[in-house]
Design a protein around this nucleic acid. Structure first.
Lengths: 340, 340
DNA sequence: CTGAAAGCGCTTACAG
DNA sequence: CTGAAAGCGCTTACAG
């Protein structure tokens, strides 16, 4: 590579000052149009590459936004990311993506890296057990934080997620209305607000229908396709013989249905299964999955908007914004059959 | 936020020079241990945040590695990314992830952004139709590029991917050995090297077995679960009545199996289906998918290593490194049945 | 409309 | 083992 071309190279070859070049390249109205055109033309001809580090050091804005979630390979987060990406795409921000896999340490590392890079803001789905101090560290150093999908007790940052308790009650009520009485809940964990809310929504719906809540009918843990698949054995061997399962999410539901099918039963006929999220693949599962839309696209879009607004100076009210989930009835649920 | 703490703040409060602080924080042996400890302690106490932009401006190394692929939500790329991530995790690099969705423009933007940020290197799966100049732009500016999953004609950068032609012939031969003679190929595109290689591998395997190659048996296009699902209608209405399908990848195969099941046929019994990639979900599909392992984890690991080596100064030979695919026989393929 | 100069916060020879 | 000083490549008052 040849000699590095910088602002001053352009300035010298054109006999103007670096100040003029700097202004011209950023389309400042202070520079005469003819000068600007000459400068831009020269920049192109020389193959000039703008040095964002230098600019950022001077202005203390980096144009970088950090996004960290549990796992970008999980389509639930993937759909949120896609919405964030398309919202940020129109702006001039570059975004840095990362997984924390629920490691508080990885998350802290990420926040620190963003701080070191002078990141302008962070959108995050906090790791299980995130200490509020870690998030405050960002805010205290002038880097705003927006929460998605999960919230943390004792933290009042702006947050966007679905109304889990309400959403899971939609699924549970749907099964109850089909005549099911022995309904298991498969997957999830009490360690997240989401996990607690969904279990609570399930419990509430059963109680309201005067159905006894049996702790054994809860199979906690699974959160992936693989987890749901493996839980099928446990599910099918429950002595109470559940006729339906409210699953933690679509992935668990799809895995569970595969496991049920392997055992020779027909999901949607012998056993009713509901998912949660309404991922793109829910509708093409076999059978097509009855599930609850969890507003991923809205969560991502609103979070990105909120951050952009905040960076533009406006200060929206903090606190939680709940997206209202919606029921999507398909073929994985059906009326209660006579005892199996 | 209080007054910004910088190197000089630490230096002043301790009565030493910034040079000493800088060296101490980076564990230079030039600094006395006692001095170093005092400095580190003070940095912690003051809540010092290292300014990477300033350092990077000075050293012209940023510690940033860019990774761009077609779509991180596609599990095939997800698995590659995971391998890259775990390899890079041990190093001190931050990585910036992005999708190009096969838009050459998005890809060029990404390369330019990396250049502006002073990125140390890029790992990429190039967009369809990538002009060699775009990749050369990076190299010319001192930013090394490593290719994964796809390569580009006329570009001699180091590249890592599976041996597609060989791999697809494994799948095709497996079906032939089960007695199938009317074998369709579902998905993929001629616009990528991968697409051309896989089709060629399929054609070669058929020819070698003296089976006529019928162009109508190729259903190009699908690359996703949704695409495979939708292709089922076309597949099932082919006048030649294929008894087996060699699919572009696992996602297409899973989608196709779902579509076949919807039509009342049993994949693995009525119609044999092979996938490609051996994603994590291949083994839990129903039926478990017969497929070809495409070495995602190896591709990611080796690419990351190659870049790290290059950044450390060693200059590995350029050119293509092919990973040898392996057959994974499961339940989605079976012996030819009497005519359906 | 344009230029001269200071400064963002580091690191790196260089000197002692 | 430590310090004084220059410089990375920008942007921003300030002056004209």
């Amino acid at each position: 590579m040849a000699q590095k071309v910088k602002l001053s190279t352009i300035a010298e070859t054109l006999g103007v000052s670096t100040a003029t070049v700097s202004l011209a390249l950023r389309d400042s109205p202070l520079v005469a149009v003819s000068t600007r055109d000459r400068i831009k033309e020269q920049a192109r001809a020389l193959g000039y590459i703008y040095n964002r580090r230098a600019a950022s050091l001077r202005t203390s804005r980096s144009g970088i936004i950090g996004v960290i979630v549990h796992d970008i390979m999980n389509p639930f987060y993937g759909e949120i990311l896609k919405a964030i990406e398309s919202e940020l795409d129109r702006s001039q921000y570059t975004f840095i993506l990362s997984n924390h896999y629920d490691s508080v340490e990885k998350q802290r590392n990420f926040i620190e890296t963003m701080l070191q890079l002078g990141g302008d803001g962070i959108i995050m789905s906090p790791a299980i057990g995130s200490p509020p101090e870690d998030l405050e560290l960002a805010e205290e150093n002038g880097m705003p934080v927006i929460l998605v999908a999960r919230t943390i007790d004792g933290v009042t940052l702006p947050g966007f997620r679905g109304d889990d308790s309400y959403g899971i009650s939609l699924a549970t009520n749907h099964l109850i209305s089909l005549g099911h009485k022995v309904i298991a809940m498969v997957g999830g964990t009490d360690q997240t607000s989401t996990g607690r809310d969904r279990y609570q929504g399930y419990v509430n719906a059963l109680r309201k229908a005067d159905i006894e809540v049996l702790p054994d009918l809860r199979i906690p843990g699974p959160r992936t396709r693989q987890g749901g698949f493996e839980a099928a054995v446990h599910f099918l061997s429950l002595p109470q013989k559940p006729t339906a399962a409210v699953c933690w999410n679509d992935l668990v539901a799809i895995g569970l249905m595969n496991g049920i099918a392997r055992a020779g039963l027909v999901p949607g006929v012998d056993i009713s299964v509901t998912g949660y999220d309404d991922l793109e693949e829910a509708s093409i599962a076999t059978p097509a999955l009855t599930t609850v839309w969890n507003g991923q696209s809205e969560v991502g879009r609103l979070a990105a908007r909120a951050l952009l607004d905040r960076l533009a100076g406006s200060h929206d009210p903090d606190g939680l914004h709940l997206i209202k989930p919606e029921m999507r009835i398909r073929q994985s649920t059906g009326p209660l059959k006579p005892r199996r």
